[in-house]
Design a binder for these strands. Sequence first.
DNA 1: CGACCGTTTGACGCAACTCAACTTCGGTGG
DNA 2: CCACCGAAGTTGAGTTGCGTCAAACGGTCG
Lengths: 242, 242
Amino acid sequence: MNVRQDIHNSDIPVLCRSCEVRHKGVCGALNADQLVTLSKHSSKYRVAAGEELVADSEHVSTYSNVLAGVVKLSKMLSDGRQQIVGLQFAPDFLGRPFRTESSLNAVAATEVSLCSFPASVIERMMEEVPELERRLLKQTLNELDEARDWMLTLGRKTAAEKVASFLHLVAVNIDPEASVGRGPVAYDLPLTRADIADFLGLTIETVSRQMTKLRKEGVIEIEHNRQITIPDIGRLGLHANI
Amino acid sequence: MNVRQDIHNSDIPVLCRSCEVRHKGVCGALNADQLVTLSKHSSKYRVAAGEELVADSEHVSTYSNVLAGVVKLSKMLSDGRQQIVGLQFAPDFLGRPFRTESSLNAVAATEVSLCSFPASVIERMMEEVPELERRLLKQTLNELDEARDWMLTLGRKTAAEKVASFLHLVAVNIDPEASVGRGPVAYDLPLTRADIADFLGLTIETVSRQMTKLRKEGVIEIEHNRQITIPDIGRLGLHANI
DNA sequence: CGACCGTTTGACGCAACTCAACTTCGGTGG
DNA sequence: CCACCGAAGTTGAGTTGCGTCAAACGGTCG
């Protein structure tokens, strides 16, 4: 059931046929021939939660698409204080064109499924396929919008609003349909309390207290620490001040 | 002395000949013919400090290059809390392709000189000139890097470090040479204390106290509230925890 | 001159941090 | 099977960095 029906499905590389994000990520810009070229140099693989994908200031020569799971992007000060500066969900593109040195750290927050390709191949195809470059520009602009939204959260929201904003953000990314409706949303938290704290610029204890507060107010339900149910996402939005 | 010597200077539009940023901003991607096309629809003008350039959720149909001065990009919560999410210096491009509705507010922080053109012209040229799209991608990637750097500042630095980081950021943007050397840097602050507070996620009073502290420690000198001298930018960097 | 704006300075309060104890849960091995 | 362990999370008590409120200062403009 994973195989999509395409007009020229037979031309589509085997690796790509069962790919859930083929039409969504940057690959959506490519035709069958271009997909063949790219897939020749691509490989899918899974990494466990906690694995480091890109080390800070490491030389990067491969890019990836996130097929499933969540990747956290973080920065650190010399004394160890850490800040998560972005979360990548499927079908996000992972990599920084025009710079071989990474300025941040990419770690799998959950088990992650990736499709990787050499940077050189993508860079060559960007020359040939303007639509590919355009997709990258669009994704980068979206990430910039998200980063700026989060700056407002980091700089101006209270701890309670920050935690609600985070739960809201994950809900919207895991279930894009949910954000519009008002029905219940349920998911497994992709991050530990420590990660959430690093994403929100708070401490573990403050995150824990605010989660408890939201639970007692009936805004969320929590089971086994990680399973979250949001009965009314609109109400959560109010607490997040969105 | 403003007129640059080019091989085909006579082909360069009059409007562009004296332009200080022509080779740096997105215009650097264009040849003489393309510059002529663009300049036919362009106009330079100045706006006073405090003028609004783009209102939040306003329909945007023109883009601009910043030729001189500083533009602040900000976001606001419904109750009035505000966060500046970016500063644009020359020769930055001002606008958000692929979206006609602005998600933020652009206000001149100082007197600003702009070169504006209709969005439709840029969008058409992006189709024809891949190098233009590439420049936009590069600028967007740089802005994303800066936004993420600032997220670390907002989420994890102390008030003292935040203020030092801000003074350092302005120094580097106003005098790009200065950042490498260790010599003194002097500039006029482009932002009021209120703006600085909104950029750092602090209050006016805290910004003022931290500036006073840096002054008393000899890290900076302040004259007439706005004129800043940094005797040793490396030392400022230490206080900023960079 | 007085009104006003941007800024500084001081006194005080509180939201979030720190430190510490405790609980829960999954895994592991005797 | 239970005992033990470490990792993750919760809860409480006390502290503190920054916010709030208030007053005063200096420059500018009508």
